[in-house]
């Protein structure tokens, strides 16, 4: 573990290697490899972590990259983020872009301009994104989605996966949401009460209670839609 400060006027770096813990605070770069624990909220320009990280507070950073497991007890505010592995956030997530490969759990709201992901996620609040492109390899659970464009695909369609999904519902690669609202929605394997939007494509394996569309709607024969309503003129 080493904490070194640079020239005056510039924020220090936080570098953790191996097993260690550190206090929170403001840093220029935070680099954690191994098992790291941060006692309080962190602010950093760059956050890079490999291994298992627990932050007992929030994290605010311009750029972040995580490989491994990360637990955040506060909220996350970030510019660009890249995640391979698991991320658990007790608060809310706010960021510019997110490249996801793995699992994310957010207890609050999740607001991103761009979300590109493979894996699974749980958002207990509102998932709001400019463009979301999701390949599900696990369960996706969101209370509410509000987007400009959304594309949902099932990642792995192998026999083996379907079998596991059939046995353990949590591993079923499906998106579940109460409401989904957006301009362009392209859904597959999605269960939702209400879907509202302008251009909507309901693909294979969907089960939707009510669809309200503005200009276009196409429904795959293998999808179930309770009620179709055209809104506007």
């Amino acid at each position: 573990m080493a904490e070194k400060s640079k020239d005056e006027g510039q924020l220090p770096d936080l570098i953790l290697n191996g097993v260690g813990s550190a206090a929170g605070g403001s840093y220029d770069r935070v680099l954690i490899d191994g098992v790291g624990k941060v006692g309080d909220s962190l602010t950093a320009r760059l956050f890079k972590a490999n291994g298992q990280i627990r932050v007992k507070g929030g994290l605010e950073t311009g750029e972040m990259e995580v490989n491994g497991i990360m637990n955040l007890e506060g909220s996350l505010k970030t510019g660009r983020m890249k995640l391979d592995g698991m991320l658990h956030i007790e608060g809310s997530l706010k960021g510019e872009s997110c490249a996801l490969n793995g699992l994310v759990t957010v207890k609050g709201d999740c607001e991103l301009e761009e979300l590109k992901g493979e894996g699974g996620f749980t958002v207990e609040g509102l998932l709001s994104a400019g463009h979301a492109d999701i390949r599900l390899n696990g369960a996706g659970q969101v209370r509410e989605i509000g987007v400009e464009t959304l594309k949902v695909r099932q990642g792995n369609k192998s026999m083996w996966n379907r079998l596991i999904g059939g046995i353990i519902p949590k591993l079923k690669s499906e998106l579940t949401a109460k409401t989904i609202e957006g301009d362009h929605l392209d859904l597959e394997y999605t269960t939702a009460d209400i879907v509202r939007g302008n251009v909507i494509v309901i693909g294979e394996g969907c089960s939707i209670g009510r669809v309200e569309y503005g200009s276009e709607l196409s429904v795959h024969p293998g999808a179930r839609v309770g009620k179709e309503v055209k809104t506007g003129d």
């Binding site: 709001s128 400009e148 957006g182 301009d183 302008n198």
Partner: peptide
């Protein structure tokens, strides 16, 4: 306005 705009 559209849903997208509102959320944006």
């Amino acid at each position: 306005i559209s849903y997208g705009q509102l959320y944006r």
